[in-house]
């Protein structure tokens, strides 16, 4: 007999047990693993899609921001350029003003220098003139300059115009204070007496005279009474001399100003 019915039953049972075991240990875990993997792949793909979308969004945003930034930068640059231009203009103006001021100051300084020079020349000239005059007078008349001055003054008093004399005489009569004679130096008693006499003779009266020393008179003598004045001093000569010196300085400045190269005029050709 080829068929053993016990074996048939046992094999059928074995087979059913095997079916259950294989389901338990093979098909279920394998299919589960495959499903899990598929789910995972789907999830990863979805995640990748989401990330891609997000990246696209971020890229767009970034581009947008970049454009905005470019615009802002251009605006700022334009603003900065304008400001720089304005600042440049301002600085140029300031520099121009400063240059003008400096030039003005320089001119002022030059003017001051010229003035000081004038003063110095004037002083020096005055001293020189005195020295020369004194030396000359001493050499010629063997008398001091002051004496000569007193003499000149007394001579002028005497040779005074009648109109001036009358004016002075009126003034002397109405004056309550004594006549003031101011001089740059202390007059010796002789000269005082000479001046007193000259005044008395000129106005034909006994006039009370008060002598005073005033160094600002620059070597001269002055008679003052009730608003009237008779004076002689070297200052007059010095003033005229100063004018002369000024003219000399101006003449000296002119060539400096005109010291610019001039185009040479073509010379006419001479044929021989």
């Amino acid at each position: 007999m080829l068929i053993d019915w016990f074996t048939v039953g046992a094999q059928a049972l074995n087979f059913l047990i095997l079916v259950w075991l294989m389901k338990r240990f093979l098909y279920k875990p394998i299919l589960h693993a495959i499903d899990e993997r598929e789910k995972r792949i789907v999830a990863e793909l979805a995640n990748a899609d989401a990330k891609k979308a997000e990246a696209q969004k971020e890229s767009n945003e970034f581009q947008h921001k970049n454009e905005e930034f470019d615009q802002q930068r251009a605006a700022l640059l334009s603003k900065a350029t304008d400001e720089a231009k304005a600042e440049r203009q301002r600085l140029l103006d300031e520099a121009r003003k400063a240059a003008v001021a400096l030039s003005f100051k320089r001119q002022e300084t030059l003017r001051n220098d010229a003035h000081n020079l004038n003063q110095a020349i004037r002083r020096k000239t005055q001293q020189e003139v005195f020295a020369i005059a004194r030396k000359a007078l001493m050499d010629l008349a063997a008398t001091s300059l002051e004496e000569r001055m007193s003499e000149v003054f007394t001579r002028r008093l005497r040779e005074m115009d009648d109109t001036i004399k009358e004016g002075l005489a009126d003034a002397l009569k109405t004056a309550s204070d004594p006549v003031l004679v101011r001089s740059a130096f202390d007059l010796p008693a002789e000269q005082r007496t000479a001046i007193q006499n000259a005044i008395n003779e000129t106005f034909s009266a006994e006039i009370h005279v008060r002598f005073e020393t005033a160094p600002d008179l620059i070597s001269g003598i002055e008679l003052t009474t009730n608003g009237q004045k008779v004076a002689w001093s070297i200052a007059d000569y010095l003033t005229s001399m100063e004018k002369g010196v000024d003219e000399i300085l101006k003449e000296k400045d002119k060539p400096i100003a005109k010291d610019e190269p001039k185009p040479e005029e073509p010379k006419p050709e001479t044929k021989s």
């Binding site: 053993d4 074996t7 074995n14 095997l18 075991l21 294989m22 240990f25 093979l26 589960h32 693993a33």
Partner: peptide, 28 residues
Amino acid sequence: NATIVFTWGLMLVLVVGSKLITRKLSTG
């Protein structure tokens, strides 16, 4: 008999083999 014994042997191989392989299944 030999049929049943060899069947058991095969069952053992199949089940143990499956168990060993599916013990550390990777889902990655």
